[in-house]
């Protein structure tokens, strides 16, 4: 597979390490009343679609960027690649 890194262009997927469902960005609030359930679901009940999947890849043998790759799990076709930090900020993850 080839991943079109937003900063570095097309790179072989072998340079990357895979983590999984990009919803791992949405770490719950530990102070919320349902924190225990929220953390359980956050960590364990990830999206696993047969089709379009947003997922985290880490450019370990490269620039160390975490990327959000939108990829089809049936065909492996990649629709888009974004920097995970941009996605995280857009999703309102602040300090």
């Amino acid at each position: 597979m080839m991943i079109n890194h937003p900063l570095l262009g097309l790179r072989d997927a072998a340079e990357f390490v895979y983590l999984g469902d990009a919803s791992l960005i949405n770490r719950p609030d530990r102070d919320a009343p349902d924190a225990a359930a929220a953390f359980y679901e956050y960590l364990h009940l990830r999206d696993n679609p047969a089709g379009t999947h947003r997922e985290l890849w880490y450019h370990e043998q490269g620039d160390r960027s975490w990327l959000v790759v939108t990829r089809n799990t049936l065909t492996h076709d990649i629709e888009s690649v974004e920097l995970a930090s941009d996605v995280a900020r857009q999703q309102g993850r602040d300090v």
Binding site: V17, L19, L24, I25, R27, L56, Y58, E60, R64, S65, W66, L83, A84, S85, A88, R89, R93, D94, V95
Partner: peptide, 15 residues
């Protein structure tokens, strides 16, 4: 190191 980069970029990108 990978885990810490995940924390830095994905969880707390504004630190």
């Amino acid at each position: 190191f990978r885990h810490m980069e995940f924390c830095r970029q994905c969880l707390w990108p504004n630190l």
